[in-house]
Amino acid sequence: MAILELSDISVRFGGLQALTDVSFRVSEGDIVGLIGPNGAGKTTVFNVITGVYQTSSGQVSYDGRPLKALRPHKILALGVARTFQNIRLFQNMTALENVMVAQHSRTREGVFGAILRTRTQKREEGRIREKAMQALSFMGLADFAGEVASNLAYGLQRRLEIARALASEPQTLLLDEPAAGLNPAESRELMHTIGRISALGISILMVEHDMKVVMGICRSIVVLDHGVMIAEGRPEEIQRDPRVIEAYLGHG
């Protein structure tokens, strides 16, 4: 069972306590929303899970295995992939190449295979391409495969980030504000896509400001404020929770 579990995570940046004793879990097949005002520490949670930041205390475990001291590429190999709040595509590579990079941890061929173009290398390369095209098609980007990432429209870049994460064959997907900057039609489309990803059996943890999106698809929601978890529960409960309302209205 691929359960992502955070227990009592705390993170400090110098004098700033970015996260304080955050604990929650993302069970298999779950769609969990992570919400909270700007600067609440949502992206920090993602960075802790994916091994970019070290925790001051507490631990993250995946599949029952502690992730502490694993470098990010190892964590991806275990099956946790993510997207970025500020799009971080490989700007000068094509859409297809971007997605192909994500297959890196699933493939083996080294330099000698590449130079000699061995049969196994060619077969593997073909498989990488195929998987990458699948991921692109899944996100409706097949027509843009040859396009350089930086030339894609913003909405397509957002989708390409998700395609890239999917191409790493994750079991758990972390989406950091995937609807940021999208128009309402694109947002709706995105909700639909997230549903389809979930249907593949991939668990999802998403940060999102658009309440329509969050309430529409998340089965449970975790609310952060100033690095502290102030609520956790089903969408209807969260909407009514006075602390949540206060946190949002209080900050404007």
Binding site: R71, H73, V101, I128
Partner: peptide
């Protein structure tokens, strides 16, 4: 695969690491 990884590192090292 190796060449793409080189390029990914050139383009964005952190993102490359996070993509495996």
């Amino acid at each position: 695969r190796i060449g793409r990884a080189f390029e990914a590192v050139r383009e964005d090292q952190t993102a490359a690491e996070l993509m495996g």
